[in-house]
Design a protein around this nucleic acid. Structure first.
Lengths: 341, 341
DNA sequence: CTGTTAGCGCATTCAA
DNA sequence: TTGAATGCGCTAACAG
């Protein structure tokens, strides 16, 4: 035993062969029984199950996949600190299970890049990947799309190898602006998503809606996290140029906006109205419920899984090559009110 | 082609053999080069890399694991809607990578039980599992622990087959109560975690601290989610028996408490002080920053990974069999203030 | 109904 | 420094 392998051998797990030997039958029979396939006598079926349970046998999913030539695996890349992504994951698990696929998650964190997250998904031999709000370049996404069926969620990108599911961002921002204008607001600022996925579309939707109402747009740099909303408000305060309403890029960003407004003694919605985007399940619980543009995570997840499977199974579904657009709606809660200026 | 397999064949991926053939060398050589092992000429190394890149070759992690007899995989079961778990995951990825292990995540959702989440981890042949705040019975956890190295995070459970990493919950609740008493509060209610992991310890910590100060404890049923905090406050309001301070089970629960207090026109901290537990990265952004008991997710993640690896590699580390206790500290922000009654 | 055989993609002897 | 052979745990095709 060399230093390299000293004590690094994990215990061997029970295999199908162990069960077969113990039950006094062939491995093929055990395989049949474990898969619930027909072709085994009730007596043997019973016996195999009993021995498997006694031995604590769990089939090795990797060996099975290797042999079958397919993994039945859907890979999901997501950002671990995004509450909205958690909502999507719930939906993906549900839809994938219903379709007979397993799910493998690969998280993006501060110390784990999207490249790495996607790389492990490839190494796991996923049959398709669902990328939730990827920030990678269009070129890299296209390359992934060229390698295996790829569904991009919550990001605008047009490429023949990429199937896109997203919300109608422009429509969503339009709803938000209309709501605020209806409340008498004219000085409406958009704290944007900077380089985040779909940030550009939301900027466009904001600009278009403002133009429609003959209002002057103003965009302040934000981002997808709380801290970005917080910093944006600090900047507005330092310029002594606070608007009467703020449209945040998403719910976490809106939370940051609210937090800093509150800390600065500015009341919401009396002095400033705030709107988010996503309708994360947390949005309703931000002390005052957050008025926000809702995009249905469950519906998007189901669409994404459906498309992924269509691509895997080469169903000639033309829909797959069009953007799957989910229509958002405005959820009015407590952070918006009439303009008092 | 039968109906069963119609169009269900996913495209074949590039294999090591493809690279070998294309590069005009043996598969063994390609294997060496891809693993960065010594024993190949610079020229060949170069050539193999080039061909691999051209063909878009990614090693099959399952085949590799199967052959090596070990997966180098750490399984993590977590609850997808818990922000604190996201913080833990960040730390686990970092620590695992540093130790040369890969991580496989298995989420618990409304429609996906802990049993199922752990089952897939077993089928994936993880060498150890880290269970974050498991709610399963002690018996089932022990059974898992009997099958493979198991580290339980954020839950009190004593069993020879389970390695535990947790915060000093009693200490944490003590800090919170002391802080409130120091501010003059006497009617302090604990909105508990009901059957959640470590809820019992936190109840105990609360009771002990209240007794120390000669105060009457009062516990209202809560839970780990926003809705539970919200409902608890509704109950207190309906009984017209609002305390001057509320200790919530965790941050999301505290958020629900704050939300409903605000909706009911009760000001924080003027009329009621509120304290959470966890110090999720969101806590600082709840409009008024949430005063909370901090447990260091990164530190706990590092401990958990260290223990998991010790167990896998059979290092005789006696620490592994003792509870790994992380000392919490109180982070005072804006939701606590002097008692005005 | 049951057992035997072959091979999925890879890493690892061992020989050349 | 390189290549041919072997087997990880499992399933699919076939033979009995």
């Amino acid at each position: 035993m060399t230093i390299e392998d000293a004590g690094t051998a994990p215990a061997r797990r029970t295999t199908l062969a162990d069960v077969a030997r113990q039950a006094g039958v062939s491995t093929a029979l055990v395989s049949l029984v474990m898969r619930g396939a027909p072709g085994a006598s009730p007596a043997n079926r019973e016996k195999v199950f009993r021995v498997a349970r006694e031995l604590g046998y769990v089939p090795d999913s990797r060996a099975r996949a290797l042999r079958q030539g397919r993994s039945q695996l859907l890979g999901v890349m997501f950002h671990v600190q995004q509450p909205f992504h958690a909502d999507v994951i719930e939906g993906v698990y549900e839809a994938a299970e219903a379709a007979g696929y397993d799910v493998v998650l690969s998280a993006v964190t501060d110390s784990r890049s999207e490249d790495k997250a996607i790389g492990t998904l490839l190494a796991d031999r996923c049959e398709a990947v669902i990328l939730v709000a990827p920030q990678s370049s269009r070129e890299w996404l296209a390359e992934v799309g060229g390698r295996l069926p790829t569904v991009v969620l919550v990001r605008h990108v047009r490429h023949p190898d990429l199937s896109v599911v997203r919300a109608a961002d422009m429509k969503g921002l339009g709803l938000a602006v209309d709501h605020l204008v209806g409340l008498g607001h004219r000085r409406i600022v958009h704290v944007d998503g900077a380089g985040s996925p779909s940030a550009e579309q939301r900027r466009r939707g904001y600009r278009a809606a403002m133009a429609r109402h003959g209002l002057e747009p103003r965009i302040v740099r934000g981002g997808w996290a709380e801290i970005n909303g917080s910093q944006a408000v600090e900047q507005l305060l330092s310029e002594d140029d606070l608007p009467t309403a703020i449209l945040a890029f998403n719910d976490p960003c809106a939370n940051g906006v609210l937090s800093t407004l509150h800390r600065s003694g500015i009341s919401v919605p009396e002095e400033v109205s705030v709107i988010g985007f996503d309708d994360t399940h947390l949005a309703g619980f931000s002390h005052i419920g957050l008025t926000t543009v809702r995009q249905d995570a469950g519906q998007m997840a189901r669409m994404a899984v459906g498309r992924a499977i269509s691509l895997i199974e080469r169903k000639d579904d033309p829909e797959v090559h069009r953007d799957g657009v989910v229509v958002p709606d405005l959820v009015v809660r407590g952070t918006t009110g009439p303009c008092r200026q």
